[in-house]
Amino acid sequence: MNTNESVATSYTTLRGDSVHELEIKRSRFITYLYRVESEAAAREHIAALRKTHFDARHHCTAFILGPDRMTQRSNDDGEPSGTAGIPMLDALAKRELPNGTQLSDILAVVVRYFGGIKLGAGGLVRAYSEAVSTALDHATLLPRQRLRIFTLPAAHASAARYENELRAAGYQVEPTQWQAESALVHIGIPDTPEAAEELRTHVATLTAGAGELTATETRWVDLI
């Protein structure tokens, strides 16, 4: 494996951006969730919200980036230290998902309009954590998976049959590359040794042992 390649083979992100509002002791906590893939994109969203909600007292943020979640940032934006950004980040980082993956490529911004009643440090921690957790409850999430792409040479007369039978067996068939005298069928599978061995066994049966698989690139895909 390339040393620059992610260790993770799957994670979960947002299907689309979302917004949810909570009122706690007359303070409004408006949580925006965005799918982002870079710090630059995250900071563009934050800057835009500061302009949209220019009259809000706080714009607290947290984001996690990358399949391996190596980039994690948070900001209290004027709230007492540790009472906003870190609880928000924890709500993202520790979210338990039914598919067993973890959240990444996600930005949370909580815009707070102060309602005149102080919440105290403990109250702020609970409020910001709840704001993000509740927003996630209402968001639509999307799993992503790293696929390893294999190519299978085939005669023109066999390529369509291979495509159909591989699809019927549950494999992701990418667009076939048609050449002058033959075709290359492209197959995407989860990037694990077990999945590769299963594919080799299936192709051996499909081609009566004549098929020669070649592993090529890896690619992250949304599992829609």
Score class of each variant (00 low, 15 high):
116 G>M: 12
85 G>S: 11
90 D>S: 14
113 Y>E: 08
100 G>Y: 12
102 Q>M: 14
105 D>R: 08
126 R>Y: 01
124 L>T: 03
118 K>I: 13
99 N>H: 12
101 T>G: 04
97 L>V: 13
114 F>A: 09
89 L>H: 04
103 L>M: 11
122 G>F: 10
82 G>P: 01
86 I>W: 03
114 F>C: 06
125 V>E: 06
115 G>F: 13
84 A>W: 03
108 A>G: 09
129 S>M: 09
109 V>D: 03
115 G>Q: 10
83 T>C: 07
112 R>C: 01
80 P>N: 01
92 L>Q: 04
119 L>I: 08
105 D>T: 08
85 G>Q: 03
126 R>L: 01
109 V>L: 02
117 I>R: 04
124 L>E: 00
93 A>G: 07
119 L>F: 06
104 S>V: 11
91 A>Y: 02
101 T>W: 09
116 G>I: 12
92 L>T: 13
113 Y>D: 10
125 V>I: 15
112 R>F: 05
98 P>K: 12
122 G>R: 12
105 D>S: 10
102 Q>I: 08
128 Y>I: 01
126 R>V: 00
126 R>Q: 14
82 G>Y: 02
92 L>P: 01
106 I>E: 10
125 V>N: 05
119 L>H: 08
109 V>G: 05
109 V>W: 06
111 V>W: 00
107 L>P: 01
94 K>W: 12
97 L>M: 11
84 A>G: 08
104 S>L: 10
120 G>W: 07
118 K>M: 15
118 K>N: 11
125 V>D: 00
111 V>P: 02
123 G>S: 09
81 S>Y: 04
111 V>I: 15
127 A>K: 03
109 V>P: 06
128 Y>L: 05
84 A>T: 10
80 P>K: 00
124 L>D: 05
118 K>R: 15
92 L>G: 02
108 A>T: 13
87 P>L: 05
103 L>G: 07
114 F>M: 01
